[in-house]
Design a protein around this nucleic acid. Sequence first.
DNA 1: TGTACATCAGTGAACGCGCGTTCACTGATGTAC
DNA 2: TGTACATCAGTGAACGCGCGTTCACTGATGTAC
Lengths: 195, 195
Amino acid sequence: MRKSREEAARTRERIIAAAAEEFREHGVVATGLADLMKAAGLTHGGFYRHFASKDELVREVTAATVDKTTSLIRRAGEKRPGRKGLADAVAMYLSPEHRDNPGQGCALAALGPELGRADAKTRAEAAAGFFKLVEVLAEHAEGLRPEQARKRAIAAAATMIGAMTMARMVKDPELSDAILKSSADLVVRSFDSSS
Amino acid sequence: MRKSREEAARTRERIIAAAAEEFREHGVVATGLADLMKAAGLTHGGFYRHFASKDELVREVTAATVDKTTSLIRRAGEKRPGRKGLADAVAMYLSPEHRDNPGQGCALAALGPELGRADAKTRAEAAAGFFKLVEVLAEHAEGLRPEQARKRAIAAAATMIGAMTMARMVKDPELSDAILKSSADLVVRSFDSSS
DNA sequence: TGTACATCAGTGAACGCGCGTTCACTGATGTAC
DNA sequence: TGTACATCAGTGAACGCGCGTTCACTGATGTAC
């Protein structure tokens, strides 16, 4: 039954990918290893050939997903220069598509408080992801001192994450859309140097 | 062993209070009924004399806690008129004390994504709580049309909840404080009519 | 290059444990006359 | 107001179940000569 190293490495990635989706969709604690291994097309016994514990998997998933989300946001913001790029990036994050597909989206919005209760390494990965998102946003703050840009970007990132979480919680589509729209407006406005 | 009706009613409240703290501190799924009943000074067998299921308790806890948080914020904002009252309310919500005591604080910040995955009634209670918070904030928006005030208040509430969640996740005290401070600044600024 | 042996990815059963829920029991409280 | 009986709040043991983790086993892959 032994598989080649390449194949084993691919299996490991498959487990991480399946876990990333299941965790973001149902929560970390609510997702069992058996469910998640089945989603990866395996039986649960093989899990420990790849990870020392569920916590280790959570750590790896957190690191992988926050990086991926940040890259997507960065790329969305690079298509047009300056404030327009910012608006594009924010619109992508605060889109109905992102709201309706938590399994593919931002881990900070899907798992926020749970990551806050995770072990130190996982929390550190999550925190690093948050500040990477902050950096991406800060790059779009033209005409502000770097220090000021960073402050605005921190608040903007918090707004985006809170808005996505609340938009998912509110079932009424009109109200949920309003949360996304109002928050996107605030984020873009928040980088104006005037106020 | 039978207890009087009054005492039984007090017991019920004690269970809700204990659950409210345990849920917000450790998460709903991660909190067992036995733990929570012990925290209320009872054995776990008596739980079902008061609630039909864990889900029913979650629903009641959600309704009770979001109401309580909103009242606290409202009261904090009533001490001084207008924009100053807003600043007071926001400062209370985004305080290090609130961050360091999730068990006593806002359920939306402590349980956000988990409430989004809860059953319809619980989610509705949580959503109602969110919009009550929005109303409280909107009351402080002087000089804005009601429609505009509501939009700003929605984004402000999302910012507050996201900021609290991230501030709890980020362990470095300086960075965590910066999240609270930057976000509080944004929320207060966001009600300026100029921009 | 071919052969013999060690390794180990993945399977599936099993481990102890804690989960939400049920139940028989207790005895104080509530109700009916 | 006093008595007899029904009710039911709370206890503690037990239910089946799924959890994270372990383990014996398999057979293909990797390694050594």
